[in-house]
């Protein structure tokens, strides 16, 4: 398989993630779509690493996974905190997120 076949897949996954982040209202699904965008980037990174034959791209993909895990922990913590405060879990209702 040529490396170039992997890049359209990563572009499609990334675009789907962008559309989902804008369209969906549930913050849980918005976080899932952020994961999609990060995964699209990861696939491109690993493909380029394979093309050059050195591991830098794979290390960067692992760092991206770490950042994604941190983002999930913080984001889900915020969603649980919102739910505890009886604030509706919906991004359209969260325009005035102060205090």
């Amino acid at each position: 398989m040529n490396i170039s076949w992997y890049l359209p897949v990563s572009a499609i996954v990334f675009s789907l993630g962008v559309a989902g982040v804008i369209a969906r209202r549930n913050p849980l699904v918005v976080l899932l779509c952020l994961e999609l965008m990060l995964n699209g980037g990861n696939l491109a990174l690993v493909a380029f690493a394979r093309m050059w034959g050195n591991g830098d791209g794979q290390i960067l993909a692992l760092v991206v996974m770490t950042v994604a895990a941190c983002e999930v922990a913080i984001g889900l913590g915020m969603i649980v905190a919102l739910y505890r405060q009886k604030i509706p879990v919906d991004v359209d209702e969260l325009r005035e997120l102060q205090g």
Binding site: V63, T66, A73, I74, G77
Partner: peptide, 16 residues
């Protein structure tokens, strides 16, 4: 990355 994970874990506990 390890330090970032520590901060995220502490932050998640504080938030939730």
């Amino acid at each position: 990355a390890s330090f970032l994970l520590l901060i995220a874990a502490v932050g998640a506990v504080v938030l939730a």
